[in-house]
Amino acid sequence: MDARVAWIAVVLAGCAPTYRYSFDLTEPLGSPQLQDNGPQVVSDADVQADLRIDADGDKVVIGVQNKTDQVLQVEWSNITLTRPDGSVTTLRPGDDVGWVKPGEKVAAELFPVVLPHKGDAAAAYDGRRLQLAVPMIVRRAARTYHFTFTAHTRKT
């Protein structure tokens, strides 16, 4: 690349708009969003989960409450995030956490959630879906909870 082309490329990169993300949990339907970009809560007979994708912090924040009378294990090393293009990222908690005793709740931050923040790559995420798969052992049976988030991008 000659110097002029390189210079133009740098200028163009510098001009690319920057985007911020927000996410709606669209499947399964959760309770109304509590606050801007705050956690959304979904629940079934056994598990209550509150979730939030923190795009600025590059993480998913998840809380899991065990509503059963047996220990519940989240398979923390097998949680995956599937992007709109089908690529899959395995997430891990920032701090090691154990199982969830009956009636208790654990919270964790899952890394890394890497999203493009500039240019067309970021804009293309608007309206697209990301799927979080959280495998658990609930009542001694393997079960995977799937959460679908719809991304919204806005220029900053």
């Binding site: 590059d58 690529s87 890497v114 493009p116």
Partner: peptide, 13 residues
Amino acid sequence: SLQSDPAVATRVS
């Protein structure tokens, strides 16, 4: 690009 390119993050992982 690690901070903003999912493919690079997957390679590091």
